[in-house]
């Protein structure tokens, strides 16, 4: 079976700085992969390379077998299959929640306004925010904004979702509601690649955990191994530091 995401020998440099030094890994359809590691290890850059918000310096990324890194690739079309959730939510502040959810549906997928609104209401229901359909983002709490952002991605019916530290900008008491939505998505079989610092979420939800440090994948495997019994000294040191917090 073709992998949802296949990354081969991916390198990324910012000028002199080598951020990713030859990454190889796959995410299978329906799999939930959590990427952990210290800040500056290249996790977010890796995620942003997958939907080409960052251009890879070298290497290949295949999305369901199609080459995302090909200069001639129809990136806009491929991106509609890949939902992306950002640390800072990035809702469109000048648009209502409903419009946030319908604008790409109507303009990119060419759905009718009516169909787009039906889809929008359905996904808002899934994230538990049906009553906020006419609000503006600024009036929502951080947790609600992030759930709207997840709904905005879901409205495009993506085949997979990328999460870039989705709870890092939230007040502690708002983290749970976002993780609940993500947990539900995982249970429904969504393919997910999640960069996160929430170790208990990774432990509970991930099929596989990838530990990155200094631009390379140091260790990967089931959460019970990588998080409970890491085989490398670097992973052990990182996990000790995170757990001591």
């Amino acid at each position: 079976m073709t992998a949802a995401i296949e990354i081969r020998d991916l390198c990324k440099c910012f000028g002199e700085l080598e951020v990713l030094k030859g990454i190889d890994f796959e995410v299978a359809e329906g799999e939930v992969v959590c990427v952990i590691g210290p800040s500056g290890s290249g996790k977010s850059t890796l995620l942003r390379c997958v939907n080409r918000l960052e251009e890879a310096t070298s290497g290949t990324i295949l999305i369901e077998g199609e080459d995302m890194t090909d200069p001639d690739a129809d990136v806009d079309r491929l991106r509609t299959r890949i939902g992306m959730v950002f640390q800072q939510f990035n809702l469109f502040p000048h648009l209502s929640v409903l419009k946030n959810l319908t604008i790409a549906q109507t303009k990119v997928l060419k759905r009718s306004q009516k169909e787009a609104e039906e889809v929008a209401r359905a996904v808002l229901e899934r994230v538990g925010l049906s009553d906020k359909v006419d609000e503006y983002p600024i009036r929502l709490s951080g947790g609600q904004q992030q759930r709207v952002a997840i709904a905005r991605s879901l409205a495009m019916n993506p085949d997979m979702m990328l999460f870039d530290e989705p709870t890092s900008a939230l007040d502690p008491e708002l983290v749970g509601e976002v993780l609940d939505v993500m947990r539900k998505l995982a249970e429904e079989g969504m393919t997910m690649m999640v960069v996160t610092h929430e170790m208990s979420f990774a432990e509970e939800v991930a099929d596989r955990v990838v530990f990155m440090d200094d631009g390379v994948v140091v260790e990967e495997g089931p959460p019970s191994v990588v998080l409970k019994d890491p085989q490398t000294e670097r992973a052990r040191r990182f996990l000790r530091m995170v757990r001591d917090k």
Partner: peptide
């Protein structure tokens, strides 16, 4: 206009031009 705005629009599959005219310019 924060960079994240156009990143969010582009990741929804909007082209660069559409992103400029529907997301960035109104703000």
């Amino acid at each position: 206009v924060p960079r994240g705005q156009s990143e969010a629009a582009r990741s929804l599959g909007m082209s660069a031009n559409r992103t400029m005219f529907t997301i960035v310019l109104p703000q």
